[in-house]
Design a protein around this nucleic acid. Structure first.
Lengths: 261, 261
DNA sequence: TCATTTTATTGATCCAGATCATGATTGTCT
DNA sequence: AGACAATCATGATCTGGATCAATAAAATGA
């Protein structure tokens, strides 16, 4: 049974507090004006906890806050007219969600929590107020939004041009990069989402996801143990993200060399 | 033979000057502070013309300006590691391009002109300067970028969950909506891009695009005459954008009714 | 603990759309 | 105008991944 979250929930006991890894760190630091952004925080006025299955926001909710995942994971998705669902992202430690609501001031997507998750909340009016005195804050925000646009473009490439193997490899590599970034000691990762959700995100079925994960394991690239993935051969995985076989070309008005200037 | 554009090119003879239809109009009006944004323009300091096959920007170019298409059309695209191309958008009258460069201050995509095209140029430093005195300018920009993120999400849905018919229908409907918005008298449209490019954009081959356009014509929904499309039955086209057949569900933790709050 | 539901896995079959192939148009250049 | 190249159209065939099916393994809950 789905529940709205209770914003008065008790304070989280945090295992991870590495604000420096967070995509919002730039904003937090600017807002706190050099003071320690880890403890006193001028930008983030509130943090709260959600449990598996609870919504962070729903489609149509009016927009007041931007969120960052402090610890845990969530998924975001949209609906088509006929009720089909497209997962638009999985978001873990340090990732920002809610940026799609700034146009129209209503959430177009939904965000649901995949495990017990700590959220940092930034009031948008408060952000605007701070921006007046700290112009650089605005630039940071534009950069963050631009980055989200780039992510969308990369997903278009994945969904439009890559085959099933390349899609899975690309997704696993993005996970691997997060592990590196967050300096988790073990090259392993717990998939908090189902195979079906991975498939939905990548434009595949759950069966195809299973089969390809099994094949990667056979080939000694990863080890799959239920929800856990162990990364064995990152180099081979990298190769698989794009095979350089089929050239899905567009009309470029130029058969010949690229740059003349 | 590809050429860089010559920014000293002669001034355009404009057929369309309806700034009010432009996505940048909100910015222009705010910047000009109530004065007629159509003639004197505080935000757009320069306009120029490009011809078919010329680049507006290329991947890796350093970012200084944002652009709006005043008249004409361009396409934007990115490359994968192995040289595959994904067209990320076709942009006509009133549409803004270049927003993906704000993260990293370099263009990640390329923009190439499909026909003789007038471009409005906004210097980003100039925009920043104006924003200091006009905070609302920043909100407008955030809304514009948020809208671009939404577009990306819709494309993920199209590429991840829609079949070929639905993709074409969706694309034709987006064209139809532009015609309405720009109040072009005839329900017709000139496709300035090739079938191959349409296919590339929609994750299909040129053959599939041809066949489905032919089928739409047989069914009396449109008429295809070379580069021109005539819209006959918008209602039927709308139905075809999503058929409501296959439910590509994600795991939602809830088989039952939606909202409890 | 065991019963029930959800999720994962693996095999067999099918089909939408890719690929291959061949002309017909259309556009461009001299 | 005529020649050449690019683009469009349409038929024949092939195939990657979907669909269907049937357990197995986990998670959930009483």
């Amino acid at each position: 049974m789905p529940k709205r979250y209770d914003r008065t929930a008790s304070a989280p006991t945090l295992e991870f507090m590495r604000c420096k890894d967070c995509d919002m760190y730039g904003l937090c630091r600017l807002a706190s004006n050099g003071e320690d952004a880890n403890v006193t925080n001028a930008l983030v006025k509130r943090r709260f906890v959600l449990r598996r299955g609870e919504y962070l926001y729903r489609s149509g909710d009016s927009f007041h806050e931007i969120y960052a995942v402090r610890h845990g994971s969530i998924k975001t998705y949209i609906y088509s007219d006929d009720g089909k669902t497209q997962i638009t992202g999985f978001h873990g430690h340090g990732e920002i969600v809610g940026l799609d609501a700034l146009d129209g001031m209503r959430f177009a997507s939904e965000a649901i929590v995949l495990e017990t998750t700590n959220i940092c909340e930034v009031s948008f009016p408060h952000f605007q107020e701070l921006s007046r005195n700290i112009p650089e804050l605005q630039n940071q925000m534009l950069a963050i939004m631009s980055h989200a646009i780039l992510r969308g473009q990369q997903m278009m490439l994945l969904l439009g041009k890559k085959n099933a193997t390349e899609r899975l490899a690309t997704y696993l590599m993005s996970i691997s990069r997060k592990i590196d970034k967050n300096k988790l000691s073990l090259p392993s990762y717990k998939l908090t989402m189902s195979r079906r959700d991975v498939g939905n995100y990548l434009g595949l079925t759950q069966e195809t996801v299973c089969r390809i994960l099994a094949r990667f394991q056979e080939d000694g690239i990863i080890k799959v143990e239920g929800k856990y993935i162990y990364f064995f051969d990152i180099d081979r995985l990298t190769e698989l993200t794009s095979q350089g076989r089929t050239e899905h070309v567009a009309d470029l008005f130029e058969p010949s060399p690229r740059c003349l200037t």
